[in-house]
Computed example of a mutant assay.
Amino acid sequence: MSKPTDKTAPAAAPTSDPSTGRDTASRLSARGQAAHAERLDRQAAALRANLLRRKAQARSRQENDSAAAPTSSARPETGKPKPCP
């Protein structure tokens, strides 16, 4: 008799590294796997810090651009100068 397959059961976690496509579980020792996990953690932290830094730069550039933009004396809907009071 064949074994019944349970299609609703969760699949086993993949043992390959998605960035390289290599099988890491069978080739690394416990210490090697721990070092690999630490590298991934450091990379993730560096990417988060980089993203925060880029967002802060974009915000400061946006604030500088809006502060440096001269105020127009023309009406935006017509482009004609505003009348003097």
Rank of each mutant, 00 (worst) to 15 (best):
S29V: 07
T71N: 10
P81T: 02
R22H: 11
M1I: 13
A35T: 09
P81I: 03
K82D: 12
T5K: 12
G79S: 10
T15M: 00
P70F: 01
D41W: 00
C84T: 03
P70H: 02
P81Q: 06
A11H: 02
P83V: 00
D65M: 09
N64V: 07
Q33V: 00
S16P: 00
L28Q: 05
T15I: 01
P76S: 10
N50H: 11
S26P: 00
A67Y: 07
R61Y: 04
A12R: 08
A45K: 14
M1R: 13
A67C: 07
S29W: 08
A49T: 11
A45H: 09
E63A: 14
N64E: 13
A74D: 15
R42K: 14
D6H: 03
L52D: 14
A13H: 00
L47F: 05
A34S: 04
P83A: 07
G21T: 05
A44Y: 03
R75I: 12
P83T: 04
A69Q: 15
R53G: 10
P14M: 02
A74C: 14
S16Y: 15
A74L: 15
A46H: 08
A12T: 06
R48A: 15
G79T: 09
A67V: 09
N64P: 00
D41I: 02
Q43G: 06
G21P: 08
A45G: 09
K7C: 00
T71A: 13
S73G: 15
R53T: 12
A13P: 06
Q57D: 15
D23R: 04
R27C: 02
A35G: 04
H36L: 13
A34Q: 09
A68M: 04
L28Y: 06
R48S: 14
A58K: 09
S72P: 11
S26H: 01
T20P: 11
S29M: 05
P4S: 12
C84Y: 02
R54F: 08
A12L: 08
S16T: 14
T78H: 06
N64F: 03
P4N: 10
A11L: 11
Q57V: 09
A69E: 14
T5R: 12
E38S: 11
S19Y: 02
A68T: 10
A69M: 15
A37Q: 09
G32V: 07
G79R: 11
P76D: 12
D17I: 02
R53E: 13
M1N: 11
A56N: 09
T24A: 08
E77P: 01
L28K: 04
R39I: 07
R42N: 15
R22I: 08
P10D: 03
P83E: 03
R39T: 13
